[in-house]
Amino acid sequence: MNPSAANDTYKLPPKLFDARCKACWLMLGVLILVVASFATLNLQWAQFWSWNAAQRMGRFLGELLHPQTSTVFVTKVLLAALETLAMSALGTLLAVLLGLALALPAARTHAQDPARWRGTTRLLLNALRSTPELVWAALLLIAAGLGPFAGTLALGLHTSGVLGRLFAEAIENAAPGPSFALRLRGVGEARVFLYATLPQVLPQLMSYTLYRWENNIRAAAVLGVVGAGGLGQMLAFHMGLFQMGETSTVLLAMLALVALVDALSYAVRSALSR
């Protein structure tokens, strides 16, 4: 064999010193960007670490350590927590349905698939998820009025853009073998998806859905700030009046709700992985 041909066939890996230098230059560039970011911000470190700031923060935290535990108020918080949970669950369900409906035209299922609507659908998904939930809620509050209905729709629209993109990627990355075998037998695309593609990607779709449900719990609490109901609305109201005891109770309810959903999501994921 010609030595030059052998050298072309079996190329030596790059020198370790060169690779390290590239990594060092990359890290140096990142460090310069971080330093430039700090330099452009008006960070008042002296005021932040001052004794006066520490006293104010300590007084604020001390007020938060005494939550309101009256029966009437705790009952209101529990009802608001159930409302927040319902908003997140229903919003996630709407997002799953809409996201899956948009994921199908947004995915190229096989090499010969023309995917005529792929670009348009992905552009729509980008628009849905790039618009924050607060903006959707503000728009829908004009049409639906104050209350959890607008917040639920806002969660559904934003999350459908996120799940639709994730679902489309999962469908495109599914193993093509089972689908190809069914197409060779003349099976229609709908049945190919139901019997070949969906069983492969279903655990992944469930994992994405549960993760977004966890996020929607937090988002539903934030949406209440603009009048979309739930714990967030109570939080904005009592913080605005500087009622720290009531604020502390609402925050504890949020923590408990997120922990409950996280535990439930972990249990479902563990059951699906068996």
Rank of each mutant, 00 (worst) to 15 (best):
200 Q>V: 07
23 A>Y: 13
256 A>P: 00
221 A>P: 00
252 L>Q: 04
101 A>L: 10
140 L>H: 06
129 R>S: 14
147 G>W: 01
147 G>E: 04
43 L>D: 02
186 G>Q: 09
257 L>D: 00
180 F>T: 14
187 V>E: 07
232 G>M: 02
190 A>C: 10
116 R>Q: 14
193 F>I: 15
119 G>N: 05
42 N>F: 03
182 L>F: 11
264 L>W: 13
127 A>C: 12
119 G>P: 01
268 V>K: 00
90 L>N: 05
234 M>R: 03
191 R>E: 14
3 P>H: 09
208 Y>R: 01
124 L>P: 00
7 N>F: 14
61 L>A: 14
125 L>E: 02
216 N>M: 06
273 S>C: 05
56 R>C: 05
244 M>H: 07
78 L>M: 15
117 W>Y: 11
156 G>I: 03
70 S>A: 13
36 A>E: 02
117 W>G: 04
140 L>C: 08
196 A>S: 08
225 V>G: 01
113 D>I: 14
38 F>P: 01
111 A>M: 09
267 A>C: 06
35 V>Q: 10
164 G>R: 00
187 V>F: 12
99 G>Y: 09
5 A>T: 12
215 N>T: 06
190 A>V: 14
75 T>C: 08
216 N>V: 04
10 Y>R: 11
21 C>E: 12
62 G>Q: 13
236 A>K: 00
122 R>K: 11
265 S>T: 09
264 L>C: 15
180 F>W: 15
63 E>W: 10
71 T>K: 14
115 A>P: 00
21 C>L: 13
219 A>E: 11
7 N>H: 10
220 A>N: 13
204 Q>C: 05
179 S>D: 10
113 D>Q: 08
153 L>C: 05
125 L>M: 10
20 R>E: 12
58 G>N: 14
238 H>R: 03
173 N>K: 05
106 A>I: 06
223 L>N: 02
236 A>G: 01
209 T>S: 15
263 A>R: 06
78 L>C: 09
221 A>N: 05
128 L>V: 07
114 P>A: 08
89 A>G: 12
256 A>K: 01
168 A>I: 10
40 T>G: 01
161 G>E: 04
146 L>Y: 09
127 A>Q: 09
43 L>Q: 11
176 P>S: 06
109 T>A: 09
226 V>Y: 10
135 V>W: 07
226 V>Q: 09
176 P>D: 04
237 F>A: 06
65 L>S: 14
17 F>Q: 15
123 L>A: 13
182 L>N: 04
9 T>H: 13
36 A>D: 02
3 P>L: 15
140 L>S: 07
216 N>R: 10
212 R>N: 08
268 V>R: 02
46 A>P: 02
55 Q>W: 14
232 G>Q: 00
271 A>G: 00
53 A>C: 09
153 L>I: 15
166 L>D: 04
253 A>P: 00
67 P>L: 08
85 L>E: 12
90 L>P: 01
39 A>V: 07
181 A>W: 07
165 R>L: 11
84 T>R: 03
133 E>I: 03
216 N>Q: 11
228 A>G: 02
132 P>Y: 05
